[in-house]
């Protein structure tokens, strides 16, 4: 059972400049799927096509078997999907946090009498309880991204997209955001992460690797992140433990299996005896 299915999707802005070509993939419910690729690889374009923020001219996209291009396709997507963008500053409509969340609620025709409760429960979900009246400009980067997430959680979206949402945050902000995404996965939300940073995707259930406008590889996080050659091909940084594994191999030292994290590396080295 797939939540999102893309079939033969291609996109280009101008003649002869394809951004993505013949993309086929599916996204499963209740899991974190990461779309990994370097800048300009087309990953943001894919997300925008799914969310109907760009016109789909070639190929088909289905959300819960609803065709994106059908009569009420776009309305359906807006109800099901929410997105947190890369730049924390350019996604808020109001300077006060609760007003911004209420903006989304109004757009989805939720009665005003329910607004306060929706805001309160959304803020609880992102650990920002009590921040209703705060000015968004006084929040840290990590808090802003959590506030943006609260905005979409208030709408009870089931499919949440994070488009390089951690890339402009400091290390603590990145950690906050990752914790939130884990928490949401545990609440059975379907999450799609777009990133070029392996630290963001290492806990994903599935990774789709994009390079040269195409999907070159997809599978579990372990399968993709230990595929040294494909990562280099895609211009993605190799995880430290994988790099060590490969470099030790060149020096004639072979570990039983390729580790993904430093802890696994330690375990493998211990097992060498």
């Amino acid at each position: 059972m797939t939540v999102i299915r893309a079939s033969d999707v291609s996109f280009q802005y101008r003649e002869n400049k394809k951004i993505i070509e013949n993309i086929n993939f599916s996204i499963e419910p209740g899991k974190i799927t990461a779309i990994l690729g370097k800048n300009g690889s087309g990953k943001t374009t894919i997300i925008r096509l799914i969310l109907a923020l760009l016109p789909l001219n070639e190929g088909k996209i289905y959300i819960n078997n609803v065709d994106l291009q059908s009569k009420d396709g776009i309305k359906y997507i807006r109800k099901q999907c929410g997105i947190v963008f890369q730049n924390p500053d350019n996604q808020f409509v109001s300077p006060i946090l609760e007003d911004d969340i209420k903006f989304g609620l109004s757009n989805h025709c939720i009665p005003e009498s329910l607004h306060s409760d929706c805001v309160k429960s959304a803020l609880e979900k992102v650990n920002l309880s009590g921040f209703e009246k705060r000015k968004i400009s006084t929040l840290s980067g990590g808090q802003k991204q959590r506030a943006a997430a609260a905005g979409i959680l208030a709408l009870d979206n089931n499919i949440l997209f994070f488009d390089e949402a951690g890339s402009m945050l400091d290390p603590n902000g990145k950690i906050e955001l990752r914790k939130l995404i884990e928490k949401l996965r545990n609440q059975n939300k379907t999450i799609v992460l777009v990133s070029q940073n392996i630290d963001d995707v290492i806990t994903a259930d599935r990774i789709i690797l994009i390079s040269g406008h195409k999907i070159i590889c997809s599978g579990s996080a372990r399968e993709v992140l230990t595929d040294y050659e494909k990562l280099i091909d895609a211009g993605i940084q190799i995880p430290f433990a994988v790099r060590v594994y490969k470099d030790l191999l060149q020096k004639g030292i072979k570990l039983k299996k390729c580790p993904l994290t430093i802890d696994e590396l330690a375990e493998e080295l211990w097992n060498l005896n």
Binding site: D89, N90, L155
Partner: peptide
């Protein structure tokens, strides 16, 4: 640039 990004964000949040 800000206007561009913000308009996409607004559209994504269901503004009609």
């Amino acid at each position: 640039h800000r206007a561009d990004e913000l308009s996409i964000a607004i559209e994504a949040r269901g503004f009609q």
